[in-house]
Amino acid sequence: MTRLVFMERLRSLLGTLPFSEQQEALRYYEEYFNDAGPENEQHVIEELGSPEQVAQTILNSNASSLTNSSNAPTAQTAPTARKKTGLWIFLACTAIIWGPVLFGVVITIVVTLFAVFIGLFAAALGILATAVAAMVMFFAALIIGVPLVFSDSLNGLLLISMALFCVGILLTGGSLSWGLFRYVIPGFVRFCGKLFKRFSGRKTKKEELK
């Protein structure tokens, strides 16, 4: 048997274990082979026995660690360890039941927040563009309108009034988009950040409990 065959069979035999436990064990034995060196490969395989034996020792110890995880001399170790495993099982069950629902909810919230952000940004940009256009028109109307007052006073005054109209748009739009960029969007981003921090903060606390 080669190392590859050995590891592949071990992988399939550990299929009932939690994924992290599987990875941990496989990693250990991969490394074990690496450290033994290719020249000792056959020797290691012989010493380890069959993949079935190796898998059995891992599965046995995993099963017994759920019931009594420690035979240490200090008395207080066993109860805390058992409590921890109980909590872990509880958390795992909760995660399995609520996982898909929670996933949907989280995705919905994230997408909604992102859509609001894009909407706000687009609105602010649109208003800003209008204000800039109004400014250009203001100068254009003024430059053409003022000299025109002397030759064609009615059209000249019309252009000047249009320029003043543009000033109105410029002031309203400018301040509106400035407010959006300066206060509303950063405020919204901060709000999202806080929301995310709170969510992930609770998550890490849960992980600590494990």
Binding site: E24, A25, Y28, Y29, E31, Y32, D35, A36, V44, E47, L48, G49, Q53, V54, T57, I58, N60, S61, N62, S65, S69, S70, A72, T77, A81
Partner: peptide, 28 residues
């Protein structure tokens, strides 16, 4: 690997017994 060799120099244990021991001590 080294840990296994060191222990096997003294006591006759199978090479596959050390991983569960390490894992258990890690969990504790």
């Amino acid at each position: 690997y080294q840990l296994t060799q060191q222990i096997r120099n003294v006591v006759d244990v199978s090479e596959s017994t050390l991983y569960p021991v390490l894992r258990r001590l890690q969990k504790d």
